[in-house]
Amino acid sequence: MKKEIPLAITFISGVLLVLALFIPHKPFGNLEEIFNDWYIIVSGFTFLLGIDSLLGYNFGKLKRKEKDAPYALVLILSFFITLTWGIVEIVRTPEHNPFGPTSTFSLYFYNSIFIPLQATMFAILSFFIASAAYRAFRAKEINSALLLVSAVLVMLGRIPLGQSAAPYVITVIFLIFAVYFFAESAGVTEPKIKIAYILVALIFVALIYPLGFVYFRQHIPEFADWIMNVPQMAGKRGIMIGIALGGIAMSIRIILGIERTYMK
């Protein structure tokens, strides 16, 4: 019974909600609203579970005197100070919402501690992104070279300085490729391949002016838009459709009781 009851609840809820969508009349029509109300109420209680889990985990760290126990202590203290202050404000001014954004303490805590901390955490990302871009965007093969060139063009196309900087960036990139192919040709003994390498190098040099100084100087924003609207969107759509089909398959498995990992 321990398994059968949850499975039955899941099956009945799932089937009823599917019916409610396709038969928007009584008694099914109201069901979705009722279920959603229940869902909203249950969602509220998940905060309690979250608090229980968070405190349990951090008290455990303190107990075991783990390396990062001081951080756990800061979290626990912050939690209880905020909670206590909230309760004190309820007692002092019952008509006032102590956890509302206009409460004096909450506002002070939010504006002076929470916002700077969270903004700082996120701002640190810019350092990591720059470092990661430097290390990851390497032209190791054709695919990664395409990714690298696309990334550079989108970055250029999306900034006001992009149009004026584009010719010089394109010149540098194309010169690097030209020098690379020219240097590669030196180590090749087969004449046809040698000529091919040199030709590719020359093509890169020849493209610098028409692409960099004529086309991209004028059209870099449109080109960045094209990358976003065509190749990027095609890939994104494929992923989204895949996720949606996967979601439907998983939902059917859960409703029918084939997928039971959520009960563990």
Partner: peptide
């Protein structure tokens, strides 16, 4: 953006 492009 230009600095990141330069590093790349």
């Amino acid at each position: 953006h230009l600095v990141i492009i330069a590093f790349i």
